[in-house]
Simulated scan of single mutants.
Amino acid sequence: MQHVTSRSGRSGLDRRSFLRAVAFTALAVPATTGLTACTSGYDDAPDPLRPLWLQAEEQAKLARQLATGSPERRDAVSVVADVRAAHAKALRAEVERLNRPVPEEGAAPEADQGGDVWASLAQARDDALGLLPGLPRHRAGLVGSVAAGCAAALELGQGPAPDEPSLDVTSVTELEDDTAEALQRALGAEHAAVWVYSLVRAFLDADYDGGIARGERAHLERRDECERLLTSAGRTPRPAEPAYVLADPVTDAASAARAVATAEADAATGWHGVLERTDEKTVRTFAAHCLVSAATRGVHWREAAELRPLVPPLPGRETTAD
């Protein structure tokens, strides 16, 4: 997000600006002299994102230190360092956006875990997911992407998968219009992903059969759950299109892998959009799980398609360069 600062280009205040400044100063003076408390003009409450920011910084440092040994280990841990450094930058920007006091000292959630970068990364993922229910919408989108980025990076080290949430989406009986529209868009991405997985079977050899089956099954489940959610809330799910137009036509194994990677990225974008347009906890939990799942599957397809970055730091939130 760009912050635009307007400047007049003049070195001093003119008479009108001076009078306006005096007027606002007068309005700011309390009318009652019995008040004993004063405020700084900032929200002085601890920012819940600050621990996540400090945790990301510490884990980026840890990963840099551990990026030694075999080339395979060095490359994987270096990716983790890049991902967590990007998280720290995005989280710090959001903390500072609210103009809260930002002391440099302070404890972060445990990052070392005995030097196990994968265990600490799994903890960071879980910390971010645990924070989601109480966040405002725009912050839920950011923190959901951070959790998804951690989960995706864990795929490089075969880290532990997050626990499957136990959800009854049919318990949601009402949706705000913007939430329903975001769910319809996510559903559209799921329809497209199912179609893409079916398409690429003819272009990929047997080594990919397991990945295709798992990915297709996951998107069918997401599709069905999303349709049930919309229906229970009195909305009519939009049907799938007969076919979808791909920006890069599938003609061989390489283009097939790129198509699947793109479908996973589109699904992540759709579910990130839901996070930014709902306060309903069941919907938010469902969307976060779908975002994480798409991001983790996407890593393997991006590797097969030789796309970079291998792990987009903020899945669903950013446009990545290939």
Rank of each mutant, 00 (worst) to 15 (best):
C226D: 07
A119N: 11
P71R: 00
A180V: 06
A63C: 15
V172E: 07
D209Y: 01
L98D: 15
G270A: 04
F24E: 15
W118G: 04
P133F: 07
L132A: 10
F18M: 13
S255L: 03
D224I: 03
G41A: 13
P242L: 07
L229Y: 06
A76Y: 03
L27W: 09
L229R: 05
G298H: 08
E181T: 08
L246Y: 08
S255G: 02
V95Q: 10
P313T: 09
E58F: 06
L183I: 08
D163A: 15
A90D: 10
G149K: 03
A253N: 03
L66H: 06
E174L: 08
Q2Y: 12
M1E: 13
R235E: 15
F24R: 15
H87V: 01
R74L: 04
H300W: 05
A182K: 00
E227G: 02
S17D: 14
V194G: 04
M1Q: 11
L167R: 11
A202R: 14
Y42L: 04
P71Q: 02
G144Y: 12
V250Y: 01
L156C: 13
A147H: 10
L291C: 01
G114L: 04
K281Q: 15
A182D: 10
A31D: 12
P71V: 02
E105V: 10
V146Q: 08
R139T: 14
A45Q: 15
R10K: 14
Q158T: 11
Y197T: 06
T170C: 01
A151I: 14
A26T: 12
P237K: 00
A202S: 15
L62S: 04
V77A: 02
A182C: 06
G316K: 03
A107T: 14
A122P: 13
G273C: 09
D207L: 00
F203S: 01
G188N: 07
G215L: 05
V29E: 15
V292K: 00
E57R: 10
E104F: 12
S40V: 14
Q59M: 13
L91F: 08
A287L: 08
A321T: 14
A213R: 08
R308V: 07
H3D: 10
E276Y: 07
T236P: 06
L62W: 04
V260E: 01
S166I: 04
R100Y: 08
A180P: 09
E72D: 15
V22G: 03
G188A: 11
A86R: 06
G215D: 09
L204V: 07
E225W: 04
K281W: 06
G270M: 05
R139W: 09
C38E: 09
D177L: 11
T296H: 02
L129G: 04
T278I: 09
T320Y: 07
C226T: 13
A93F: 03
A26F: 12
D44C: 09
R125A: 10
A161K: 12
W301I: 01
A186T: 07
G69V: 09
V196F: 05
S17G: 14
E174G: 05
D266I: 01
R214V: 14
E58N: 11
